[in-house]
Write a protein that binds this DNA or RNA. Sequence first.
DNA 1: TATGAATGAGTTTTCATTCAT
DNA 2: TATGAATGAAAACTCATTCAT
Lengths: 218, 218, 218, 218
Amino acid sequence: MSTAERRAREKAQRRREILDAARKEFFEHGFSRPTMDDVAARAEVSKGTIYLYFASKEEILAHLLLEGLDLLLSHMEAALAATLSATAEAALRALANAYLDFFQSHPSYFRLIMAFDRGRFGESIPPELFQQVLDESLRGLTLVARTIEAGQASGEFRVDDAWQAAGSVWAALNGVLVLMAHPLRQQMLKSDLQTMFQATMDLVLSGLRAGTVDPADG
Amino acid sequence: MSTAERRAREKAQRRREILDAARKEFFEHGFSRPTMDDVAARAEVSKGTIYLYFASKEEILAHLLLEGLDLLLSHMEAALAATLSATAEAALRALANAYLDFFQSHPSYFRLIMAFDRGRFGESIPPELFQQVLDESLRGLTLVARTIEAGQASGEFRVDDAWQAAGSVWAALNGVLVLMAHPLRQQMLKSDLQTMFQATMDLVLSGLRAGTVDPADG
Amino acid sequence: MSTAERRAREKAQRRREILDAARKEFFEHGFSRPTMDDVAARAEVSKGTIYLYFASKEEILAHLLLEGLDLLLSHMEAALAATLSATAEAALRALANAYLDFFQSHPSYFRLIMAFDRGRFGESIPPELFQQVLDESLRGLTLVARTIEAGQASGEFRVDDAWQAAGSVWAALNGVLVLMAHPLRQQMLKSDLQTMFQATMDLVLSGLRAGTVDPADG
Amino acid sequence: MSTAERRAREKAQRRREILDAARKEFFEHGFSRPTMDDVAARAEVSKGTIYLYFASKEEILAHLLLEGLDLLLSHMEAALAATLSATAEAALRALANAYLDFFQSHPSYFRLIMAFDRGRFGESIPPELFQQVLDESLRGLTLVARTIEAGQASGEFRVDDAWQAAGSVWAALNGVLVLMAHPLRQQMLKSDLQTMFQATMDLVLSGLRAGTVDPADG
DNA sequence: TATGAATGAGTTTTCATTCAT
DNA sequence: TATGAATGAAAACTCATTCAT
């Protein structure tokens, strides 16, 4: 069996090398410019070899996307784990900050994740891979939802539907990151990403605490 | 002079026809797939003719983008105009609903606007056109900021920095539209766009009213 | 008749303007790069107008070529006229120097004349125009031949066939101009055009005087 | 290693086939008319394949030019080698005749060599290839110069500067070939290429023997 | 498994020329 | 006579993918 094992190990290793090369190319030159030749040259394999490991260029991108989502999720899970006994608000802030960290340390992964949303590119990968990406991409939202549920249960947050609230929070976080990604908007808002991000969290948390009921009732 | 006038009219008309054809192609098949041949065929002109009116494919897209932004902005301005004497909250809701309407009636324009953010495509259009797009794209945010300033002045909203708050609100709106654009996320959140959008506005408005001060102070 | 005359005058004038514009374009940017649009813009007429005066782009070039040949020939004729009573050698040197002057003051015309030799471009102009160019292009050779005939008659030159000798002389002149047109060859020959040109004339004249008979016989 | 060897051999072979096809196309239809499609069709390969072997159309032409220069140079060197112990005059005649042979057996190569002088086309090939062409193109002149130096040393030729004289000779040879390339000029000069070429050599040699000193001194 | 040569449809853009007004 | 909008055939080059070895 050891031969088979070594083979499998080598195969995985080769696959990783190709993905590494692709990541570098795509992150450096954008998601559409690099050619398979570029990737092959960077990975120091032949172009044909790439097709032994990945069915298409789109599939490589899908796998990079999965990597990015995994990275984001592990960041968020770690952040959550570190705040187990804290308040829901603290936990939510921790999640948000983990996202912000991810955005700042891996802007290209973030861009890839955002690009996936629109990209016709879902059309050209096998459905099961597409589904996998989709599942992954929802896990962050799930973490937020669970945290809000906890705050709902503890009475910290006065929300009717935790999932709905999670959607709003998640939307706001994504929105603010996309918004501030453009230098010109940082300039117009006279604010840097850090500040703007925290302001958004403050606003949202304030809303969660206050509830979304009519003010007259509050 | 009537000859010159007619000529100018016809020229503008032809330009419009090309833009119409391009819009149909791009909205039906995505922003990168259609070729200039496709556009020419749809416009029933020769390919060369297109280049008499637009310098490149990118420029066509940029003009479509401007169209979209104009449409959005006029929606928002009209909505705002209709609520002149109302509360800031009502005005903000009106703006948001105008955005929602726009998203629902012109999803492709919305996708184009979102795509622009990422787009390497700003690189290949004349700088002045690029600037025009940029200017337009910031006007929506400006409307939101002004409305929040009004609410701040009237005491409705307890916010420190109206522009920052506007950034948060605008981010949340964009975020929720992007989020709900995917049917699968509608399903997971057990919520339709309408509901989710209103919930997000409720949350955000609640936050604006409550202010982002520490809850202990509230 | 004065109306018709004015018309004809204006027409000739317009034609000249187009040729002027074309000359500038072609001399500045090479003989193939400029487009008819460029020429039209420079002449401040519409593209269609050009085709009222010239049947094609090649024809314009052919007419510029004729201009160049005329210019060269009038230089040479003037030079010859100024040396009427001189020796044949002096006359030949005068002709050669006129060519050299032409080359130095109108390098682009020279390039055009040389380009004509190879250019497939004779194929796309009307035969009669082609013939005209050809006729013109032989007049320089004729002047040389007549001068050599004079020297032959006077006993200055010991040549058997004046036309043949003229061919050799003309060939040498063209050759040395083409040769020295390249800076790198000036460098390799450690010589400038002036010097090299005179050296070639010296060599050729020496040959004409000595005759081409076998040295043993001389 | 035999696999690698065979591969290399096949690759070289394929390259040669493409060059063969290109040569045929360009020699038959001129240096600018044929398209890459034409070349590909003639070589019976796909258009893409050509770009695996040559970076551009210009590069193909540059390589054909190098071929031509090599051919010319080997002709000349062989001719020179065959006249080692002869007089400088005989050697010079041998060189000239080799050039004439080359012109007659490979007129298209000659046209290509002449075309290079003008060619804007040096602009679009890699500098090192351009340099290679330039270097090659000067070797013929070098052979002539060395031969004249020998004649100068032996006292056969009374010239001051052998390189300058070589320039004149080379210029005359090129000039006469270009001149006689046109059938119409053969007709006007009532002379065929052979005769005219020899007459030019006679004239030039006569000049070399006589020196370019003033006749009164001779 | 790995190679890398070959493919060929596809893409944007250009431009000489025509023609209705 | 003058205009300039329209044409449409090229043309060079690219690149994801395949496949014989």
